[in-house]
Amino acid sequence: MPEAAEVAVAAAQLHQVAAGRELSALPVTHPRTVRHTDPVSLAALVGRRVTRVRSHGKWIVVDLDGADAALGIHLRMSGQLLVAEPGTPHPDRHVHATLALGPHPDPFWPTDSPACEGIRRPERAVEVRFRDPRTFGELRVLPHGVAPVAPDLFDPAVTGSSLHALAARRRVGVKAVLLDQTQGVAGIGSYLADEALHRAGIDPTAPAGELATSAWERILVAARAIAVDSIAVGGVTLEDEGWVDLWGRPGTYAAQLQVHARATCAACDTPTSSAVVGGRRARWCRRCQHPRRRR
């Protein structure tokens, strides 16, 4: 599943492609893709100019000029955004929505002026296709542009203290708190949680309510640093997951993973342990992540 890093990559690339263009059409061909959205509200976004594309947790948020709502895109397990030339055939039957974007406006383009020499001309129209084989992903109208999740991983409001206060009320393993997108922090998925906990030296099955603020701060610092490094190389693409960027390129951060999806710890070569925590499989190293460490 795309996490904070992959979603940030997709949002940055979509901003590069879409900002300044008009959303000229938004055809949707699968009902599950818009299962939480009123079709009338979705249609009201068409014809508006894209002003910004940003990420919030695992949501891509497309802000539009003059609208009191934004277009939210959630890729979930198998969603992809792919750039294509308008009118070219779909790669397969799994394209369930298309963001049709008009030519890039350039009202100050004086076609007969020598001063325009070497300046890029207005770009032609383009399509961004939402491909989702499992149909878990969705498009949703977000009132006031607010994603329905906790603060983003990089939000300064998220601190070790805020996570410690949240965890004090939870009787679950540490990883379960990190995976909860509605409370605490949004954007951390399975691989970011595994890797951050490994770097912080914390067992993912440790009771969340027993961790000190210092431990939560260390986990948060690790998660942010790993996300930044992952963004720099296009994110993580694993064999059983379909993440690619807008041009179909896989991310390469998987080569730097220490415990996630690994049989042995990359740091010490100890066989990794595995258990289900918060409904997701956790991987950790018993040597690097001591089961009794709480600070």
Rank of each mutant, 00 (worst) to 15 (best):
L178F: 05
Q183G: 01
H144G: 11
R169I: 00
R140I: 10
F154N: 06
G173E: 10
G173Y: 03
K175Y: 09
A168H: 14
Q181C: 12
L163A: 06
Q181T: 05
A150W: 03
K175I: 00
S162F: 12
S161L: 11
G173P: 06
G173N: 11
F154W: 15
P143E: 13
R169L: 09
V146R: 11
P151G: 07
P156V: 08
Q183C: 12
P148D: 05
P151D: 02
T182Y: 05
L179Y: 09
L178Y: 07
V141E: 01
L166I: 11
S162E: 04
P143M: 11
V158W: 09
F154E: 09
L163P: 05
A157F: 00
T159E: 08
L166Q: 14
H144C: 04
L153S: 08
G145K: 02
Q181G: 12
V172H: 07
V174G: 02
R170V: 00
L179F: 13
E138V: 03
L139D: 10
L163T: 06
V149P: 00
D152L: 07
Q183N: 14
V172W: 05
V177A: 15
V149C: 14
S161P: 00
F154V: 07
V146Y: 00
A167D: 08
L166C: 07
P143H: 12
Q183M: 08
V149S: 10
V172I: 15
A165E: 15
G160Q: 04
V172Y: 04
V172Q: 15
A147Y: 02
L179Q: 11
A157R: 15
V141R: 10
A150P: 10
A176G: 10
D180K: 08
V149G: 02
D152Y: 03
K175T: 10
L153E: 02
V158H: 11
H144A: 15
S162C: 07
V146S: 04
G173K: 08
A165N: 12
G160F: 00
G145R: 03
L142A: 08
